[in-house]
């Protein structure tokens, strides 16, 4: 399955395709692509503040993208990174607001709560798949919506922060905030966690027996099963770990950026992550690069809207097209005919 999903021409072609599609969409909006890109790039990379914001977006995209890729490599469609991210954020937000302990205790607990929340949510889909053979695509789609409803119910209802204006939990104590990488920015050490995770995952896939088993389950389930790889356990573990990665990402947004859980935590990172994972060819290191590229899009889109009058939603549109265009490039390589 994953071999089919790897854009065969690689990430460079992917990036070029993206730019061309984006330009076309800007023309469609009646704006000059040059002005649009200029505004986008200025907004994303025009100064230290812009760069730090882009890196914040990069971080937010990186975790769910790694999550999606992790499941995909094991042959599972995790369309539910969005819901896992939300659940992770929710658990982290609740834990963070409740914990009155020093930061060096609280922060690991908050991040763990996030990962656990995501793992539980991914794990539900994993159990359905492993135990009942239920299609994980449908399961994760449903779980996304259930997560949103649950978060909304809790945050608007019983757990609504008395001091809050929006649908959010109470603010985390300052000591529980993730340390910043740059002063006066929103960029926290979460970026470093993400890079470390990407590098570790690359190692897991390339060199470990665990990664080997996951890839075998994804690329040739029947052969893997006969080689003693337990497909049910693999499905469960892969979905839970994938969820944990996404949930951890949600926790970093809570502890590093918003400092509380808000229902508007994610503008669809979990869905965009599918595009990022594909652009990155499901390779954790390339996903790092792809997350930065998509981070530029996310953070530059507002400036593009303000200065070049291109509605920011063009970015979502382009991301959708990117998925289609990139996925289309597979299969083009000729297959040798068997007899």
């Amino acid at each position: 399955m994953t071999a089919r999903m790897r854009p065969f021409a690689g990430p460079v072609t992917g990036a070029v395709a993206l730019i061309v599609v984006a330009a076309a969409a800007m023309l469609l909006a009646g704006a000059s692509p040059i002005a649009g890109f200029a505004a986008l790039l200025r907004g994303a990379l025009g100064g230290p503040h812009q760069v730090s914001e882009t890196l914040v977006q990069t971080t937010s995209l990186l975790f769910p993208s790694l999550a999606v890729a992790f499941a995909f490599r094991a042959g599972l469609f995790n369309i539910g990174a969005e819901g896992q991210l939300v659940m992770g954020g929710l658990c982290a937000g609740l834990a963070g607001a409740a914990l009155a302990v020093p930061g060096w205790v609280a922060i690991p607990l908050i991040l763990f709560a996030g990962a656990a929340g995501g793992a539980a949510w991914g794990g539900v889909a994993g159990v359905l798949r492993a135990r009942f053979g239920g299609n994980e695509v449908i399961a994760t789609l449903m779980l996304n919506i259930i997560a949103a409803l649950l978060a909304n119910y809790l945050v608007v209802g019983p757990l609504h922060a008395p001091d809050a204006t929006g649908a959010e939990t109470s603010e985390l104590p300052r000591s529980s905030w993730l340390p910043l990488l740059l002063p006066d920015s929103r960029l926290s050490v979460a970026l470093l966690f993400g890079i470390a995770l990407a590098v570790s995952l690359a190692y897991v896939f390339r060199s470990t027996a665990f990664g080997y088993a996951l890839r075998a389950a994804g690329d040739a389930p029947e052969a893997a099963r006969r080689a003693g790889i337990d497909l049910r356990r693999t499905a469960l573990v892969a979905m839970a770990l994938s969820g944990a990665i996404a949930g951890f990402g949600g926790a970093t947004i809570v502890a590093g950026v918003l400092h509380r859980f808000n229902v508007a935590l994610s503008p669809g990172y979990g869905f965009i992550a599918i595009a990022v994972a594909l652009v990155g060819g499901l390779d954790p290191l390339w996903i790092l690069v792809a997350s930065f590229a998509f981070g530029i899009l996310q953070s530059g889109s507002l400036s593009m809207q303000a200065y070049a009058h291109v509605p920011k939603d063009v970015v979502t549109f382009v991301e959708g097209l990117a998925i289609l265009a990139l996925a289309t490039r597979r299969f083009v390589a000729p297959r040798t005919a068997g007899t």
Binding site: A3, S207, T208, A209, R215, A216, A220, A223, A224
Partner: peptide
Amino acid sequence: EALVLDWSIAENVALGDHDRAPLRRGIAI
């Protein structure tokens, strides 16, 4: 049932023995 067609011959020969010595050392292959 026997091969992962997208993998190299080298990766394929480990299938089934990837989880024990001598092909597995520690957590790595």
